[in-house]
Design a protein around this nucleic acid. Structure first.
Ligand SMILES: [Mn+2]
Ligand SMILES: [Mn+2]
Ligand SMILES: [Zn+2]
Ligand SMILES: [Zn+2]
Lengths: 150, 150
DNA sequence: ATAAATATTGATAATGAGTCTCAATTTAGT
DNA sequence: ACTAAATTGAGACTCATTATCAATATTTAT
């Protein structure tokens, strides 16, 4: 029983929900994955591991993991919602390349604190951040420059 | 012929595109709307004004307006992409209430500049920002507190 | 232990935003 | 007017996500 499991079970208990086999399987695969993932990919992983959980249950379990504080909804990429492991890195922002989909993560508590204090002024209670930018990564930016020249 | 029209026509000319009736109608409704809108709502507006433009054309015109610099993709709300009028306020960030959907806009070029310089380090070419947070607005936060007490 | 109430699941249908196709129409240039 | 290129509308289509519902499992009350 690892830390994640403890947290999840605790949340489920508090909410009168049960730690079932499918939820256990999902939890495990989520934390054997790179931090960023979308639900379809997760579902594939589960089936690749010869586990059997229905797609519906996988989707249904995401909000539970979110409410337990283990994962958070992160960015949206290629028309899919992405989640990410919260514990990995504390707070960071994303630079998403429009061309190749690459995601650059940058740690900066400074931006976040600044945003927090701006929200304070409006008595707005922040539950989640989304700081980021879309554009072109170095590679794609260079590539495009060359194409334009020719 | 207003400023928006000038800018749009100029962009279209530069791109060998034509300023057609449907594009004119869309442009007008976009700039008679509150700054934030999603395409479905825009499409409804157009039909409510007894104009006839196909849904496909409305969707198709969005990227043109974006490239012309008149609007930008803003936040995502209720599973729909939102656009917003660029000229209204220059740069600002969004606090979105998870409960009532209210959007609070905050002007701050400071955060943006900071983000820009962080991206610079990675030679990442920023095309668009999204700085914001989700949570509870003052009203909804208060309401929830009361409910919890009872 | 039994029965009733509640929670969970999987299969599958449904929804809905956004995209694609293609034949018909419009436009700009000659 | 003639031609080539651009545009349009209607509707088919995709695909992520949600809703439905009957079957199953678990908890609680008796
Ligand atoms: Mn991340
Ligand atoms: Mn705004
Ligand atoms: Zn790239
Ligand atoms: Zn609110």
């Amino acid at each position: 029983m690892n830390e994640h499991e403890k947290i999840f079970i605790d949340y489920l208990k508090r909410s009168d929900l049960k730690y079932t086999r499918p939820r256990q399987i999902i939890l495990n695969i989520v934390f054997n994955n790179p931090s960023h993932f979308d639900v379809e990919t997760l579902y594939d992983q589960i089936r690749r591991n010869n586990r059997d959980v229905s797609r519906a249950t996988v989707y249904r379990t995401m909000p539970l993991l979110v409410k337990s504080g283990l994962i958070k909804q992160s960015l949206r990429c290629q028309a899919k919602d992405q989640y990410e492991n919260v514990s990995d890195q504390d707070h960071h922002l994303h630079l998403v390349c429009n061309n190749c989909g690459k995601i650059i993560e940058i740690n900066s508590s400074e931006l976040e604190n600044r945003l927090r204090s701006l929200a304070e002024v409006h008595k707005f209670k922040i539950l989640d951040f989304s700081i980021g930018a879309q554009g072109l990564c170095r590679k794609c930016s260079n590539k495009r420059d060359k194409e334009t020249k020719s």
